[in-house]
């Protein structure tokens, strides 16, 4: 009986040590550096198409990094989440069960509250994320939507403009007609819209259906074939900000071709951002040997990094910026707008 007990205890110890070694990651006996990176992104729901493209971008970056440096072995762990409650449980699983130190996220609505979980544990969160006198805003209720409204609105009024419509909408609605009816009443010269993918296509379509013909302006996240497919002909004239195309693809000229061969679609802004994010994360992880404080400092020092999504500079607060141009939808395609 005593012998059996000892065998059970010994087995427990072996399993525990083995599991601990698994959880620790780091360098293995063969000299390969094991890197676990998580992603809490929307894989179902309204923003699933974005999550899918982020996943494709991360998977492509993983293949490229491992092909270039055989001493690195990357494990990507995906969890589905956009709303704060889903992101919170996804992060808790990634941190507690999978022991990841870097987590990529998309939805700002989930990213901001999740910092309370990741920061105390030292886990790094990465967010992939005209001349007119009267402007109106229609934006979704997220931190990004509110910030976009605030900063563009402030700049617009500083330049002498007037804001005649201000409509914040819940994340999960697709009927914007009454919000747009109110905006129409203010007779704006331009409408700034902060929405994504199919919901954005719906806003554009409903705007034109209501007979509102003023320019609609989106942002760098909107260069998305789903927007064009949902909005159809109504998308003509839709303007967005975008990364400078003269820089795109400079980071790795093969990325676009490799991505198209693998997935039969062109990489969008989300896939490109995710690709660059993983490249920067792995470089920081390898040089800091997984020390998250050191990685944070390294990432905040990134300056003029020529990625596939543009030239990236990250400031001391962790905000990434890129040179920007404007694009407009013409004949069903996004083309460069002005200089």
């Amino acid at each position: 009986m005593k012998k059996t007990l000892w065998i059970i205890i010994a087995l427990f110890v072996v399993v525990f040590v083995w599991l601990s070694a698994e959880r620790e990651g780091g360098s293995s006996a063969t000299g390969t550096m094991q890197i676990k990176i998580g992603a809490a992104i929307p894989l179902t729901g309204n923003y699933a198409s974005i999550g899918e493209n982020i996943k494709r971008g991360l998977d492509t970056a993983k293949r490229d990094i491992e092909a270039k440096d055989r001493s690195l072995s990357i494990e990507l762990l995906y969890e589905d989440g956009c709303q704060p409650k889903d992101v919170t449980s996804a992060l808790q699983k990634l941190i507690a069960v999978n022991n990841v130190k870097v987590i990529n996220q998309f939805c700002a609505i989930g990213l901001v509250p999740s910092l309370e979980i990741t920061e105390p544990k030292g886990v790094i969160s990465v967010g992939i994320a005209a001349k007119a006198k009267k402007a109106a805003f229609i934006y979704y209720n997220t931190q990004f939507g509110k910030d976009y409204r605030k900063y563009i609105g402030e700049r617009f009024t500083e330049l002498g403009g007037q804001i005649v419509g201000d409509e914040m909408t819940p994340l999960d609605v697709l009927d914007f007609r009454t919000n747009l009816t109110k905006i129409k009443e203010g007779k704006p010269d331009v409408i700034f819209v902060t929405q994504l993918t199919g919901a954005l296509g719906t806003v554009i379509k409903q705007t034109r259906d209501l007979g509102i013909q003023v320019p609609l302006i989106g942002n760098y996240q909107n260069e998305d074939p789903v927007v064009l497919s949902v909005a159809g002909a109504a998308a003509e004239g839709f303007i967005i900000s975008s990364a400078d195309p003269s820089i795109l693809g400079k980071g790795d000229p093969n990325f676009k071709q490799e991505f198209e061969e693998q997935y039969n679609v062109q990489p969008d802004v989300f896939a490109s951002n995710a690709y660059d994010a993983l490249q920067l994360e792995v470089a920081a992880y390898a040089s800091c040997k997984g020390d998250t404080a050191c990685m944070k400092t390294e990432l905040h020092k990134v300056s003029d990094y020529r990625g596939v999504s543009g030239t990236i500079t990250i400031d001391e607060n962790g905000i990434a910026s890129k040179p920007t141009i404007f694009k407009i939808v013409k004949d069903g395609k996004f083309v460069q707008y002005g200089n």
Binding site: L43, T44, G45, N46, A48, S49, E52, T197, G198, G201, K205, D209, G211, V226, S229, V230, G232
Partner: peptide
């Protein structure tokens, strides 16, 4: 897939009335 799907191309010439 979980992506948006649309039938709008089947409804060409969706007229607007007032």
């Amino acid at each position: 897939t979980s992506q948006f799907q649309t039938l709008s191309s089947l409804l060409s010439g969706n007229r607007i009335f007032e």
